[in-house]
Nucleic acid binder design. Structure first.
Lengths: 349, 349
DNA sequence: TTGTAAGCGTTATCAG
DNA sequence: CTGATAACGCTTACAA
């Protein structure tokens, strides 16, 4: 027995006023209309008594905007522990947006229903989203089609820079510098790099920043200390660690470009009976589950919560801002990383 | 320059037919109306050319249902690794629902905007959700208010059984039996329990099933082997392990009622230089990140994906089903767990 | 200040 | 099969 929700009409009747007045008071936009305190009160209490809640669909239809933001994430179905970032970002986005009166709908290019990428566009369009946030878009065209529709678009983490949209990214530079500072100050001179992940500049810059940081200290960067694979996975971390251990001069410290790689590193080290940090120092990158393994990993933390906040702020500005504000269509916010020191690093041997 | 989306009217004009025909073809409901193949084609191509996508808000307004399902999760803001289950469930729910033509909106009782719990109800009501799924509702009234509104409600994992709604839960029994079978078959006779988490039967039954399983083998269950705390946390796992290690007769195997507890267990064992599994076998419960630590943990896996599928199926049945089908208002689906064997268990000493 | 009326995009009804 | 018409709940000029 579903009780039909109260409408603004019901509230108006109960308060003995017009629908218009109810609309103004309850979802008040026009400020050039003033209402007496007394009628305002009547409306408020009437609404409360009836448990009135405005119909968002009707509002959306009338107002021409939905207050819905689409969030397109890479790989919906991936295992939580192999891709923790989109899970965290998605949740943060949703929470932040809700606090701003918006609502996020989460989709992925990989969902069964969307083998045809067109359908994804269709779905978001059907919801009449006010804007779309991409986390790590798979291709240029994936983003471009939304831009072509005239929708505000914000890209996160690994943008397709060829498409001119505002971006929010994270710069590994500061965090990696701090990491190398930390290791060097502990006396490490032989520091190796284990990396992975695609060809995006966000990934390759981790290696670049690593090399630069070592160069600042005039430390050698032998080619065999630079292990770089094609993805971020436990298996690759494991494999590269074994390669490094078999070198004539193994490193005394490892900089590992992702937590999931670090899990493989830890596994290889345990099996080789090499103690962390006494015999090998480790710093990971991401700081997702770094604190939860043993030993707790010193790690470069990414400000994911900030990324979400910034992205939503940028998006809402694009949606609500006047045309004038919208001029700089390629705002690129770069958020810094920092080192979180735990127990996986100490002086060598 | 936002190009206004094409409407069904535009499609009708372009195809030279009536709006009604477009509606029937594109979102076809009435089956008693037949359309010639030729006009159908005209409509389809016209829609494609215009990039028509139906306005869900308008449909929702007109049809009286929104195809939106609310998902109320406990603790939005908790750290991913301390509460992985809601993250996984939420994502699965969203994905499964999308494949069924529904859309999930995710909220939490703990969001800033909803200090007043009423606001959560309001938000969901405003979206005119067709139903609400609860994962671990905090209180009876939290669920009851939605039932009172006449909304279909499904509860997951840790239901408030006092409120009569369909539920989908997971039964630890089979998995724990398999776990004890496994340990006993390896020769373990001293098996301790580390548990935590509230007073919900889902939590306490893990202990009950553990005791029953041991009893089947006529094994002693000394009181000091039963360590039970108030929450699932790394710190408690750590603490309980140290207590167990200090006993006159320490156990040779540990059954740990949650992965996050197991992380603390591993930490304590490493520090005590007790090797896993050679000197101590471990089985965890949850199988969320059990595979990712070292050694990979033998763990009782919960069918979370199935839970999501079942919940959505149940929900859609309640929403769309005829009144007759809706009679059994307390369907209670219980999904079994099973043991996943990895490398943290072997014969004792 | 308050009331009236039009309209957002869709679907349902009901006569042609 | 088409075409007109009404209605869903809400906002907003504009008129009173």
């Amino acid at each position: 027995m579903k009780s039909r929700s109260a409408t603004s009409n019901d509230v108006a009747k109960r308060a003995g006023v017009s629908r218009a007045a109810v609309s103004v008071i309850l979802n008040g936009s026009r400020s050039n209309i003033r209402v007496s305190d007394e009628t305002r009160q009547r409306i408020l209490t009437a609404a409360a008594e009836l448990g009135y809640s405005p119909d968002l669909a009707a509002q959306s239809l009338r107002r021409g905007h939905s207050r819905i933001i689409g969030y397109v994430r890479r790989s919906f179905s991936s295992v939580l522990y192999e891709q923790p970032i989109p899970y965290q970002i998605g949740t943060s986005l949703t929470r932040v947006a809700q606090n701003m009166g918006y609502h996020v709908i989460e989709v992925s290019a990989e969902t069964h229903a969307f083998q045809d990428r067109k359908e994804l566009l269709q779905l978001l369009l059907s919801h009449r989203v006010d804007g779309v946030i991409f986390d790590w878009p798979g291709s240029e065209s994936e983003v471009q089609q939304f831009v072509d529709e005239g929708l505000p678009v914000v890209q996160l983490i690994r943008p397709q820079f060829a498409v001119k949209t505002p971006c929010v990214t994270v710069d590994s530079c500061q965090g990696i510098n701090e990491a190398i500072d930390h290791l060097v100050s502990q006396g490490h001179r032989q520091i190796a790099f284990i990396g992975g992940g695609g060809s995006h500049i966000v990934d390759s810059s981790r290696l670049d920043n690593f090399i630069q940081a070592l160069t600042r200290y005039k430390l050698a960067v032998p080619e065999e200390y630079l292990q770089r694979g094609t993805m971020y996975s436990l298996a690759e971390g494991y494999r590269f660690t074994n390669i490094l251990l078999s070198l004539m001069t193994p490193p005394t410290a490892l900089f590992v470009a992702s937590d999931i790689l670090a899990l493989g590193v830890l596994r290889a080290l345990y099996q080789a009976k090499i103690r962390v940090p006494e015999e090998m120092s480790i710093i990971s990158y991401d700081d997702t589950f770094a604190a939860y393994v043993y030993p707790p990993l010193t790690s470069v933390s990414q400000p994911l919560e900030e990324v979400a906040k910034y992205a939503i702020a940028l998006m809402i500005e694009k949606i609500e801002g006047s045309a004038a504000d919208m001029a700089p269509d390629a705002v690129h916010a770069v958020l810094p990383t920092h080192l979180t020191i735990r127990e996986s690093t100490t002086s060598p041997g």
